[in-house]
Design a protein around this nucleic acid. Structure first.
Lengths: 108, 108
DNA sequence: ACCTTTAATCGTAATATTACGATAATGTGA
DNA sequence: TCACATTATCGTAATATTACGATTAAAGGT
């Protein structure tokens, strides 16, 4: 059906999944890496860095924004995107918690 | 198009994205948490724990397996699933690297 | 006011995902 | 060998995602 039964899972599970989902595309990884690398929050040069059209990049940016990983400030005619510091560390925390909750005793 | 231009991105970016993609569904988060909690690698009781049909759970399991996060050993008529220890820590590492590469100086 | 630049949105097409029931495959025990 | 239990796979339908070009919207400069 393509329709996730989100209501059947906990809020924490849905939050974790939506963070991971936002990271689940190479273009969005590339965007994040570029935003991190160029410390100044560059705007639409992201488009120049990626092998994708302007509209596609804009869609990816809005998904990252929806997940809270980045934020965008209007700066004159262009928009300045950067990592959302607070949510970034929260995302890092919940992901790390999942990975660290496994203490390593697989039986197979 | 629904077709990701994977070849346009680096191997590392694609790997990171595919790990994140596998984590990008609440049912798969729930499965992993259940596998971690019940230290013995339970098999098909996963189906009983989730509000999804057997075939749907099987599909989620095979996606987690495809991403390398879990592995399954045939044990009699049933299959024993558990965290793939080696890949789990690798996944943890690459994700952590991404998050830690941001040192925190957002300008907006 | 007009044009240019920048970025979001709309319309669209192709493909992927999610989900289910039904069916097939595999292994155990009678 | 024959039923039974367990799990994977097939067929399917509905919805989501990815991507592009074209259009719109917003801000600045002339």
């Amino acid at each position: 059906m393509g329709l996730t039964k989100a209501e059947e899972f906990t809020k924490a599970q849905n939050e974790l999944a939506s963070i991971a989902k936002a990271l689940g595309h190479p273009a969005r990884i590339a965007i994040l890496q570029f935003l991190i690398k160029t410390k100044a929050c560059v705007c639409g040069d992201i488009v120049d860095q990626l092998p994708l059209s302007q509209s596609t990049v804009s869609q990816h940016l809005s998904e990252l924004k929806k997940a809270g990983l980045i934020k965008g400030d209007i700066e004159g005619p262009s928009v300045c995107y950067c990592i959302d510091e607070k949510n970034w560390s929260k995302a890092s925390k919940v992901l790390l918690e999942l990975f660290q909750s496994y203490k390593g005793n697989s039986c197979c």
